[in-house]
Design a protein around this nucleic acid. Structure first.
Lengths: 96, 96
DNA sequence: TAGACATTTAGATAAATATCTAAATGTATT
DNA sequence: AATACATTTAGATATTTATCTAAATGTCTA
């Protein structure tokens, strides 16, 4: 069996996770395909440790999931968390 | 004439502005009606100076406009800035 | 099993941020 | 004109955050 438990912290964590430009760029990358930590690192001029830190924040916010495959860890976008934020933003326009 | 020039900084500023819980609460308040700085302050346990700081960040992000009327400054929500963010979030789901 | 490789964790540091108090600015009232 | 009121600005401080280097962990391969 291949369980994937997404620990979602909350609204606040999601917004915080989205408020950093590096993390939003990572999201854009993962939009196209899942990638290993190393592949993601290649796209930035930043150490692996820093990217790892960003990935962990995104993971805690429920924005990505990780999938360990031997030496590699694949990161994948989890869009469902965005629904909540999308709904909040939309509600600002709708209701008067 | 009553010009209202909205100085919009950018995507980054908008996200940053939304990432703070106090500022999101202010947005929720202003969703219902425009309010003076003082009325907003009453809703929080925080000094006027701090709220003023938050309001200035929101103003720079284009999220609110201010309207000086004598002693008072009315703050009003400007929803159009949210469109951009809404669109970005939506695009993550749409395009594969 | 020793070394190479992928990634994270620990610890340090600089910059950004939220908050406060006190002072400044501008407007209204008496 | 003097004072009161509404709000912002300035300056200080504590916390958070992004980043780095170095070390630790875990996995593969020769």
């Amino acid at each position: 069996m291949n369980w994937k438990v997404i620990i979602k912290m909350g609204f606040q964590e999601s917004f915080k996770a989205l408020s950093d430009p590096t993390r939003r760029q990572i999201i854009e990358l993962l939009k196209k395909q899942k990638m290993t930590a190393g592949e993601i690192v290649e796209q930035f001029q930043m150490t692996g440790a820093s990217i790892s830190h960003h990935l962990s924040i995104m993971k805690n916010a429920g924005l990505v999931t990780d999938d360990k495959q031997g030496k590699y860890i694949y990161y994948e976008l989890n869009l469902s968390v965005l629904e909540e934020i999308l709904a909040w933003l939309a509600s600002l326009k709708e209701e008067k």
